[in-house]
Design a protein around this nucleic acid. Structure first.
Lengths: 207, 207, 207, 207
DNA sequence: AATGAATGAGGGTTCATTCAT
DNA sequence: CATGAATGAACCCTCATTCAT
């Protein structure tokens, strides 16, 4: 999928195999982590899910926290990867924005457990890894910043240069909110309704 | 401060003493939790900070998770308690709302570590306790719903009945975002600027 | 017995209890270590021998290496303690020396397994602890240096000042040799014969 | 170099190759062992140093302990091999002895780390292997016994038949002491001075 | 003959909780 | 009510050895 900047050491030499196995590890771990939390998931459980022995698991990582990093990175990359196809310019800037927000929130809807997990366990990463993950969040935010900027240039959006950053963050948060506050928001609003309303609010802020 | 609906069992009979001691426990635990996370904080450490023995600590709680619950409850109660004084009706509904948001975000700013903690560790609570904590969040949200409703009744705000709920949540989130995304938002905006901008967006949505 | 300069941290507060328990730990560990070697002895085994749980064991030490240190210290202290009574000045310097060597070698004979162990496992100590243990060896050597010096002062021994140190070491080694090379030396010499011969050699060097 | 009496099984048929490879293994392992100790050195590390895979390594040995045996044997053989050239009879028995001791201690000085290692890790060998290594020590001791016996026969040394054995051991120990007690002895004596003094003591015992 | 990924038993250590005093 | 020593299950991780390729 992607190649984390951070290099995790491995006993195994075959690069391709490392890639494959790590993907398997992530897939095994992510659901366990989401269901039980990072701390309550055992390395043994991951290995079992992974379908291999603990020993083999440790051939591909150094510590349990490496798995957490791999998982966090995977989630972020997945979101970005899945949003990307919906980012081609549309008939108008607001159409582009609408489409992007729509795709983004729908993807979050599908990955809600993962998003919640990300919010909760990022803090268990080492400062260094945490920084890397924040970097991924920044990149994601930049996607919306770009659309907004283009809209301003096109004369379609009316936003002071300085506020663009904040609105991009607001869009990010509005998406995450669908996952983080699902216990409340879902009771009253369907996904479609939620997207419509929130998109409306954003557009009213910038036009 | 407040009396958690949920009754945590205790070996001790004296109700007043229970109250006092639990407050001490919370104060000892909260900083430890915030600094190191729930899982990485040991009961021993809490007892040491608490100034009493582990044995005594366990006279007032049943499990480590009880402490987590107590702490979560305490944080929530603190926010609500500190916001309340700023809720008296002002000259206009929008003035009331502005004042409430301002107070709310400023309090979050002061308690940012606690807010972040809440987001991260609530999941470690038992489903029952988690529900209780969500209830507290609902109550908090209701504060903003009330103000919005009053503004609608007063003819000052123009919001479909159904959207009020969402906007109240948006306000809640805008506050928490100041804590949760501080690593990004703070680089560009001062607290005052942030409040001004976000309040502006909310008002533009409802007037 | 003695109070190691080095303070090993403990979870337990009662100083007396620490002393008692550590003595029990040492006694449990020493035979296991001697029989199986340090690395092949499990902390679990020590605990079982100790008659308590692993948890309890770890209340009194920090790491397995702490046990090794305790054991090494104990062995050294035992030898010194048991030699001391035989160190009162006798009718002549050579009588004193003979008595001291005799006592020393006989004690080594009784503690031979321990002595061999000391030679083999000291290297597993941290540099700091190793230095401490060497210090004990130096003190022991000083006992013989003292006797030799007194004999020189008394005009009974004829040794250049500079050589005293080496002869003291030779005496130390002659004792340890009885333990370290028992597989060879014992086949040919009884303990008494060994002591007589070696004492003779030492005396012929210095008179 | 030499051919251990003990036959270590091997998957490989080619005898010459076995010999060569085992020599490489020893050379790879010996420094690792000396530096980190037997238990703290992993087979993986040895293979890496050896420049081949673990699999290949295991073609030439059965267990990690086989490597230890090979290394111990190698060290012993090295000492004996290097001492041998200095064993031709000299003008007199005491000249021969002096030359032998001098060579022996100098070689120990050069191989001090190895000697210390031998003392510390021999116990990790199987009883059978240990016996073999002791045999090597016996052979080495016999070298000095021979010189002493010749001196007695020549009428140059005056030692009761029975004591020869012990003196030979004393010479062995005096050499090893230079390595084992280097932390103490070296502070006061140069190698040359040490040899002179100790040789003097030995000669005074036997003439 | 050479490789190196796979194995899994077992090691040291931690820590929430209990209970005798 | 208070204490803190005792417990032991459970955790993360290592590493000698094997075996399919």
């Amino acid at each position: 999928m992607n190649n984390p900047a951070k290099k995790i050491e491995s006993q195994v030499k075959d690069k391709g195999l490392i890639e494959t196995r790590r993907m398997e590890i992530v897939r095994a771990a992510v659901d366990l982590f989401v269901r039980k939390g990072f701390h309550k998931t055992t390395v043994r459980e991951i290995a079992r899910e992974f379908g291999m022995s603990v020993g083999t698991l440790y051939e591909y990582i150094r510590t349990k926290e490496d798995i957490l990093f791999l998982v966090c990175d995977y989630i972020h990359a997945s979101v970005r990867e899945r949003v990307t196809p919906f980012l081609e310019p549309d008939t108008s800037s607001s159409a582009s924005l609408k489409k992007a927000i729509d795709a983004y929130v729908r993807i979050i809807d599908e990955m809600q457990d993962y998003i919640v997990f990300l919010y909760q366990e990022t803090k268990s990463l080492s400062p260094e890894d945490r920084k890397y993950i924040f970097g991924a969040e920044v990149k994601m935010t930049a996607i919306f910043e770009d659309i907004l900027k283009k809209g301003v240039v096109a004369g379609e959006f009316d936003i002071p240069q300085k506020d663009i950053h904040l609105i991009a963050h607001n869009i990010m948060v509005l998406g995450q909110m669908w996952a983080l506050r699902r216990w409340a928001v879902r009771k009253k609003y369907s996904l479609k309704k939620y997207i419509d309303l929130q998109t409306g609010f954003i557009l009213s802020d910038i036009t």
